[in-house]
Each structure stands twice: as C-alpha cells, then as structure tokens.
C-alpha cells in the first residue's frame, strides 16, 4: 500500500499569556492510499489543531509532515497555498460555497486557482457533479440548493484537483440526520472508488462506517481502532 500522508512527532504549542498550551504534543500518523479514517476526540483534545495542520492552514511547531512523499511542514506560504489546492480536498461543516458562483463554477474554482484551462475545468466539474449525484444541478446557485446538496457540491469541489486526501471537518454537523446519512453514504462510495478520506468529527455515527478511528486526547493519540472488512 502506498503511503499518502505521514505525521512524525508533530507538536503544536501556543503561547497563552505566560503558559504554553500544548494543543498537539507529539502525534504520529500514517495514512495509506484508499484508507478511510476518522479522527475523534472531545473538545480540547487537539482535534481542531490537527485539522488545521492536516489542511495545511497552520504549521506545526515541530515535527514533520509528509504528503505523497514530499515534506511539507516548512513550506513557504505560497507553496502551502499551492499544496492546499492540489493535495488537500477540504470539506467544511458549513459547506462554504462561494455564494456568487454557480455549482459548476464552485466546483471549478480550485482548478481555476491551480491554472487548469477553462474547457477542461468545465468538463471535469460536470463529471464530478455527476459523481456526487448532482448532474442535474450544474447551473444552480448555492442558495437554490438544500444543505445536503450544498455539501455534495462542496465534496465535488474538494475532489477537483484529484487531491491526496479528502479532509472533512464535521461534514454532517449542519445537516439533518437523513441528509447526513446520505453524505456519509457518498463518502463510503467515494472511498470504495479508491479515494483516501479523513473525517474529523465527534459524531459516533461516522465512526461506524470508517475502517479506522483515531482517538485524540490532550494532544496525543489515545487509542486507535481498526475495523475488519465486512
């Protein structure tokens, strides 16, 4: 199995007044291609910090992070932006679509930022929308879609540049249980198609569909569970 993501002794310390907060205090993690991982933990466990670091929105204080064999922990700001666009497919709890753009344009946005030609963008955006079951909503505006549909668009957008991992932050947190279940089903389907997914959540329902759950507590990995293939 090919390793797509590796964290080595990653620490993130913040200074809060006089005291140092150790949000992450030495995390090791290895994720292989095609894995479906949930990162869970109570609030204050370092979950959000972990998400920021995995999403390349924040740099660790120390330790190494490697994506597809490339060390990224101390890349320049511009390089980080490029890597975010290329290697990380970010999915947010509140969807975060750009309200002024149609679904197709939203999905095409990461490709535009990455410099993909317009023709290619449109073709791929259409294909991705079909892949998430929204082939018939290509020209709708986000405001015309339901929450579940918006999250599907966001997932299609996250897949745009064929990233190393899909990184989802509480993807069902803003959805009713029915839409939430459908989104999880979609994640399952995408994972079956070979896409590597990491979901950061405190929803135990998510844990029931993933193959591997990592529990964080006080900035370290407390325990890890692997589910056998059914």
């Amino acid at each position: 199995m090919k390793e797509v993501l590796k964290l080595e002794d990653v620490k993130k310390h913040y200074l809060m007044g006089d005291s140092t907060v150790k949000a992450l205090d030495g995390v090791d993690l290895s994720v292989n291609e095609g894995e479906f991982v949930a990162i869970m933990g109570p609030s204050g466990s370092g979950k959000s910090t972990m998400l920021s670091i995995l999403g390349l929105l924040d740099s660790p204080t120390s330790g190494r992070m490697i994506i597809r064999g490339k060390q990224v922990s101390h890349a320049s700001e511009d390089e980080l932006a490029r890597l975010r666009g290329k290697e990380i497919g970010f999915i947010f709890q509140s969807f975060f679509l750009v309200p002024t753009l149609s679904t197709t344009d939203n999905v095409a946005l990461p490709m535009m930022l990455y410099g993909v030609s317009e023709k290619e963008r449109r073709t791929r955006a259409k294909k991705l929308l079909e892949q998430v079951g929204l082939g018939d909503r290509a020209d709708h505006m986000p405001s015309e879609l339901s929450g579940g549909q918006r999250q599907r668009v966001a997932i299609a957008r996250a897949l745009a540049n064929d990233p190393a991992i899909l990184l989802a932050d509480e993807p069902t947190g803003n959805l009713d249980s029915k839409s939430g279940a459908e989104i999880l089903k979609l994640f399952k389907k995408l994972n079956d198609e070979g896409i590597t997914i990491i979901i950061v959540t405190h929803d135990p329902g998510v844990a029931s569909i993933v193959k591997r759950t990592i529990h964080l507590k006080d900035g370290v990995v407390e325990k890890e569970e692997r589910r056998k293939k059914e």
Partner: peptide
C-alpha cells in the same frame, strides 16, 4: 469567510 475559503482551496495571497 470567502477569502478564507479561497485560501483553503488553493488561492495564495497574490491571487
């Protein structure tokens, strides 16, 4: 927020 989103999906400062 939109700026944050754009940055998260690959826009750099220059863009």
């Amino acid at each position: 927020r939109e700026i944050g989103i754009l940055k998260a999906i690959g826009a750099n400062n220059d863009t």
